[in-house]
Amino acid sequence: AVCQRCQARFSPAERIVNSNGELYHEHCFVCAQCFRPFPEGLFYEFEGRKYCEHDFQML
């Protein structure tokens, strides 16, 4: 399997985020606008991209 964002493979010891069947490295699972991790894992999706609450409100 490969990361949805960076397309790199996962190492066996690595923590992986699964979002609706899409797999991400922990450091790749970030807001599409500000590139920060999601507070408490909370995000909003718009047109296939994931956003933090602040950036989602700015759309």
Rank of each mutant, 00 (worst) to 15 (best):
C3P: 00
K50E: 05
F35R: 15
E22Y: 10
S19Y: 03
F46V: 11
C52Y: 03
N18R: 07
G41S: 06
L59M: 12
Q57P: 04
E47H: 13
F29A: 15
V17M: 06
L42F: 05
L42D: 11
N18C: 10
E14T: 06
A8V: 14
R36E: 12
R15P: 11
L42W: 05
N18S: 04
R15M: 10
C34E: 01
C31V: 00
H25Y: 01
Q33S: 08
R9N: 08
C28D: 05
R49C: 12
P37V: 07
E40F: 12
G41P: 03
H54C: 14
C6W: 01
V17S: 08
C3R: 00
F29Q: 07
A1S: 12
E26D: 09
E26S: 11
N20F: 04
V2F: 05
H54E: 15
H54L: 11
Y24G: 06
L23Y: 15
P12W: 05
R9T: 11
V17D: 05
F46L: 13
P39I: 04
L59C: 11
D55R: 01
C52H: 03
R15L: 06
F10I: 13
P39K: 10
V17C: 05
E53L: 07
R49W: 05
F56V: 12
C28K: 03
F43Y: 13
G48W: 01
F43N: 04
P39Q: 10
S19K: 07
C28V: 01
H25V: 01
R49Q: 12
P12N: 09
Q57Y: 02
H27Q: 15
R36T: 05
A32S: 07
G48H: 03
F35C: 14
E26F: 05
F38H: 01
P39S: 09
F43H: 07
M58V: 12
H27L: 15
Y24K: 06
L42S: 10
Y51D: 03
E26H: 10
I16E: 04
F38P: 09
Q7L: 14
S19D: 13
R36H: 11
S11P: 14
H54Q: 13
P39R: 09
E40G: 08
Q33R: 10
V2Q: 15
R5C: 04
A13Y: 07
R5S: 15
A13T: 13
Q33F: 15
M58G: 15
V2M: 14
P12V: 09
R5N: 10
E22C: 13
S19H: 07
N20Y: 04
V17Y: 05
F56Y: 04
C6P: 00
Q4M: 15
C34L: 03
N18I: 06
Q57N: 14
Y44H: 13
F29G: 11
E53N: 12
A32N: 12
C6N: 02
C3Q: 00
D55M: 00
G48T: 08
N18T: 05
M58H: 11
Q4G: 09
E14Y: 06
S11Q: 10
C6D: 00
V30K: 06
D55P: 01
F56A: 05
P12R: 07
A1H: 10
P37Y: 08
P12A: 14
E53A: 06
E14M: 03
F38W: 05
I16F: 12
A32Q: 14
E14I: 02
A13E: 14
G48D: 11
C3S: 01
V2I: 13
C34M: 03
Q57C: 04
R49H: 15
V30M: 05
Q4Y: 14
C31D: 02
A1V: 10
F56M: 11
L59T: 08
L59W: 04
C6V: 01
Q7E: 02
F29N: 07
V2G: 15
I16M: 13
A32T: 12
Q57E: 11
G48N: 14
Q57R: 14
F10N: 02
A8H: 11
I16S: 11
R15Y: 08
A8S: 14
R5Y: 15
E53R: 11
H54V: 13
E14C: 08
H25I: 00
C3Y: 00
H25M: 01
E53C: 04
Q7R: 08
